[in-house]
Amino acid sequence: MSFTIRKQGEIVVVDVEGQLIVGNRQELKQKVLDELERGEKKFLIDFAQTGYIDSSGLGVLVSLSKKIREQGGELRLANLNDDLRTLFELTKLDTLFQISDTRERALSSF
């Protein structure tokens, strides 16, 4: 389980490798909040290498999205596989986030 953060242009891209669950969600939250505090506004979380996400992982995404919007920024998501997409649909979080099929599409959508 790890998170890799890199800048692509003016977009902060976060790769979630492994699971996003109760045991590591705070780490993701803190990493993104640190970038937000540094003045970053555009965030993309890429789930291409993600296994599963539990309710607390979803909760962190919701909370980050709200905090980023409050600072005038935006959080977008990319590369949800079938099962992760089902999870977002079940919880209706697909209506809250802008989700792109690929990282490239997400990057060009900002």
Binding site: S55, G59, V60, V62, S63, L90, T91, T95, L96
Partner: peptide, 22 residues
């Protein structure tokens, strides 16, 4: 219900809902 409009932006409250759905 975490999918209700007033709850959709809540950070928690999806655990049991997901257990029952899955």
């Amino acid at each position: 219900n975490p999918t209700d409009a007033e709850n959709i932006e809540a950070e928690d409250g999806r655990g049991l809902f997901l257990m029952r759905k899955l």
